[in-house]
Design a protein around this nucleic acid. Structure first.
Length: 804
RNA sequence: GCCGGGGUGGCGAAAUGGUAGACGCAGCGGACUUAAAAUCCGCUGGGGAGAAAUCCCCAUGGAGGUUCGAGUCCUCCCCUCGGCACCA
């Protein structure tokens, strides 16, 4: 027997990576695709640490899917790029005393090398970086489109200010009141004028479309919760002095039980509503509330309620009774109208507040539950003509009754806030606006784009609330494009999430310089066919991208309103039971593993760890199992390559297993169930080896099934078997349902639901035949014990249950 | 507090309401070897009976229920991970 060459992953992988690059094997003709398939994965932020295992896990899962689609006859476009602007990069550059403009290109080089090494099917011709002026020129252009449409506007308001980042951060970047990037730093409340995008106008559409998007349920749920739709009513509350206040409630049915009106401390009508003798107390309380950052206010949820009586009264719109007006910091100015009616009997917080300040508690709902009850399943009481009505009906009836008096209107309220995109930092695309004393904020004319980010050495931010760019007068002062007077540039840059909100539209058109994207390419390739990424972006990137796409569609720039009709969330790779993070020091860098085991083994190992869509705990003990499997494949294929002459056909058991395996791997790969697909291939090769069938008909289909998972070694073996062209130009094997079905099956015989025996029958045997056979089995007879069989249940080809 | 996902051998995990634990790791025994590694073969949830082939009982976080039959469906509870959180 001739000796087969041994499997040297490093050599095999280097050879094929070089060849793929040389032959432009992964750069499809985007203008003449066959069944185009846009396979997108979330582009990485090029950190200094390099690609970590979490990235690899995500990219491998997406890459397998892309390669599978390519073998299935699609022209697959699988681009990659770098989300390289942003505070992450800037902070890191600051911490090591370098400039992000120098740091980022180095990091990108590292990422490129790593991305090639793991064997991704990337089309490098279409690589992009958000920091490239050729890219962010169009990010700025998108800002201008929103500005022109009135969807980008300036607003002064309470914003989250991170003292470490020395910048405003979005609501989405605040976690429990702490900065997303500085878990030990509380975010402060500041009142600043900022640029906002009117995403809340799109709340309903963003929510509705979730019903038909083919997305992981987990992601859809996260977005729904984030948008936070509440149905209720706005009620108008009048004061004896004739002032009108609007409150929002989801429980208009409880209005008869409202015993006080409570406003947020910042509410604009507080001054007017405060009686002379309460002025000092009220002002003191307001000052305290102002000083408090958002965090303390949020954390105060478990603390005793605080508040101050304004000394004035309003009328309960239902009863006409005078109810006291208070301010309390548990009422938030940025939700609803900043004012609420309190119904202590049927709301936990209102109950706490009323108890604290000895306000009356009036029950208006009767239910079986203990009080105070927040039930919506009760029946009204103490509510005049509405007594006896179930809550649901009462809601409608009471709103209609008050509406007739001009005191109510149905209202849908969302939790989603407008998107604050201003950042008082350096490392981002400058917001393309010029302030003019005569014309106000004026958009930079499109012909003058990009507004290039100047290279400045002193990019360090300060606590002034003004971007470092403002310190550079030559850049800062500029003529107003409208009237020619001296104007000033906007010195804030935009949020990184704006960069990543449209990169997928740019990818197919990276060559374009006169337009953000080529219309024909865009029609061919978008929306994205399949998007795979992490749920950590469910409410940031994915929501912003949907919003930007909706706006672009409305403005006529693209023809689709949803960018990602199909999205799958992959799981999280954790280490020792915890999320990987630099602070925990448990980040796994893949390079050493790839060096030791090879990219193919590492790819498969990551996919075998657990279900792709659930993730798993990274531990490297199991990796040998994958390597042993690839060694077996190598031995088998090389053996077949060395066997001359015509190959004999497969024995029936192997042939059946082959078709079962093709079926299983096809279905599982399509469903991203990679762990079970790999298990099926292992079962197959175990059988082939046991049966000693090392021939081409046994091996070649296996190589095709394995190719998306282990692209390098399968290319090598495919070539060794004498094929002149890349395995990725071949076709995915088809399975024959009849061959996959066994001729003979084992039917389990149960007596009263317990397994008592097994009989072998031909597939499709009748119930009578199976019963007859079963009754001859000693083990079955023993349990039937001569008693009459009362009932038989037969599941064809699977199980027979005798009930006695 | 609210909304989701989970809880199955020593470990990672599999199971359209139909043989629980496929596949892999680790472990044990054997072959090869001076030896080790690698490789190959066998065993491997717990308990019990038997010389053995085999056979029986128990077992999917806990307690009930539906069903001929439940890891899977229903009710209640416990634990855990993730998201949101004074959102009216």
């Amino acid at each position: 027997m001739t000796q087969v060459p041994s499997y040297d992953p490093a050599a095999v992988e280097a050879r094929w990576q070089e060849r793929w690059a040389r032959e432009h094997a992964n750069e499809p003709d985007l203008d003449r695709p066959e069944r185009p398939f846009y396979n997108l994965m979330m582009f990485p932020y090029p950190s200094a640490e390099g690609l970590h295992v979490g990235n690899m896990f995500a990219f491998t899962g997406a890459d397998i899917y892309g390669r599978f689609k390519r073998l299935s006859g699609h022209t697959v476009f699988e681009p990659i790029g770098f989300d390289a602007f942003g505070i992450h990069s800037e902070n890191y550059a600051l911490s090591i005393g370098t400039h992000p403009g120098k740091l980022i290109p180095q990091n990108i080089d590292t990422f490129r090398r790593q991305l090639r090494q793991f064997g991704g099917m990337f089309d490098w011709r279409h690589e992009l970086s958000t920091t490239d002026p050729r890219y962010y020129k169009w990010t700025q252009w998108i800002f201008l489109q929103l500005f022109k449409a009135g969807l980008a506007f300036r607003k002064k308001g309470a914003v989250n200010w991170c003292p470490k980042d020395m910048s405003v951060v979005a609501n989405e970047q605040v976690i429990n009141g702490y900065c997303e990037r500085h878990p030990d730093t509380k975010v402060e409340l500041r009142y600043l004028e900022q640029w906002f995008f009117a995403i809340s106008k799109y709340a309903e559409r963003l929510l509705e479309n979730l019903d038909w998007l083919d997305w992981s349920d987990s992601t859809r749920t996260l977005q729904r919760n984030w948008i936070g739709r509440s149905e209720g009513a706005e009620l108008v509350i009048e004061t004896p002095a004739g002032l009108k206040l609007t409150i929002f409630t989801t429980r208009p049915d409880t209005v008869f039980g409202a015993t006080a009106l409570v406003l947020a401390p910042e509410h604009p009508l507080v001054d007017q509503l405060t009686a002379q003798e309460q002025r000092r107390a009220v002002n003191a309380y307001r000052r305290d509330a102002q000083r408090m950052d958002l965090v303390s206010r949020k954390i105060a949820a478990d603390k005793t309620k605080t508040g101050v009586f304004l000394g004035s009264y309003a009328r309960n719109p239902a009863t006409g009774e005078a109810i006291p007006i208070w301010i309390a910091d548990y009422v938030l100015m940025d939700y609803g109208t900043g004012a609420i009616m309190i119904v202590p009997a049927h709301d936990k917080r209102d109950f706490e507040f009323a108890t604290q300040f000895k306000l009356p508690i009036r029950e208006v709902i009767r239910s079986d539950q203990l009080l105070p009850s927040e039930t919506e399943n009760g029946v009204l009481m103490n509510s005049g003509e509405f007594d006896g009505l179930p809550c649901r009906d009462a809601k409608r009836r009471i709103v209609a009754w008050l509406a007739a008096k001009g005191l109510a209107a149905p209202k849908v309220q969302y939790r989603l806030h407008d998107w604050c995109i201003s950042r008082q930092r350096y490392w981002g695309p400058p917001i393309p606006i010029i302030y003019c004393d005569h014309c106000g904020p004026v958009g930079v004319p499109e012909k003058d784009l990009p507004v290039e980010l100047p290279f400045i050495e002193d990019f360090r931010p300060d606590a002034s609330g003004v971007s470092p760019l403002a310190r550079h007068k030559e850049w800062y002062f500029v003529k107003c494009p409208q009237c020619g007077a001296q104007g000033r540039r906007e010195t804030d840059v935009s949020d990184t999430f704006l960069d990543s909100a449209w990169y997928y539209i740019r990818y197919p058109s990276t060559e374009c310089d006169d337009r953000p994207w080529d219309p024909k390419r865009t029609t061919t390739w978008l929306p994205v066919t399949s998007y795979i990424g992490g749920n950590e972006h469910a409410v940031l990137h994915l929501l912003y991208s949907r919003f930007i796409t909706m706006v672009l569609q409305e403005l006529g720039h693209v023809a689709f309103e949803e960018p990602f009709p199909k999205f799958r969330a992959h799981g999280l790779i954790i280490k020792d039971g915890a999320k990987m993070s630099k602070s925990r020091g448990n980040v796994v860098i893949p390079d050493a593993y790839i060096q030791k085991w090879g990219a193919d083994t590492f790819r498969m190992y990551l996919m075998f760890l657990g279900p792709f869509q659930e993730g798993g705990d990274f531990r490297d003990e199991g990796i040998t199992g994958i390597r042993r499997f690839l060694d077996k494949v190598w031995q088998l294929a090389q053996g077949a390559a060395l066997t001359p002459g015509a190959s004999p056909g497969l024995p029936p058991t192997v042939e059946r297993k082959l078709h079962q395996t093709i079926k299983k791997v096809t279905v599982d790969t399509e469903g991203l169930d990679y762990n079970t697909a790999i298990a099926a291939m292992m079962e197959y090769i175990n059988l082939v080896r046991e049966q000693g069938v090392g021939s081409r008909p046994a091996v070649e289909p296996l190589l095709l099934l394995l190719a998306p998972y282990a692209p390098h070694v399968t290319e090598e073996l495919w070539a060794a078997l004498g094929h002149g062209q890349s395995i990725f130009r071949e076709r995915w094997p088809a399975f024959d349902e009849r061959l996959a079905a066994a001729g003979e099956v084992e039917v389990v015989v149960q007596v009263n639901g317990k397994v008592r025996g097994r009989v072998n029958v031909n597939r499709g045997a009748t119930e009578a035949e199976v019963v007859a056979l079963a009754m001859q089995e000693e083990s079955v007879k023993k349990f039937v014990d001569g008693k009459p069989v009362r009932k038989t249940i037969y599941v064809p080809d699977r199980v027979l249950n005798l009930v006695i």
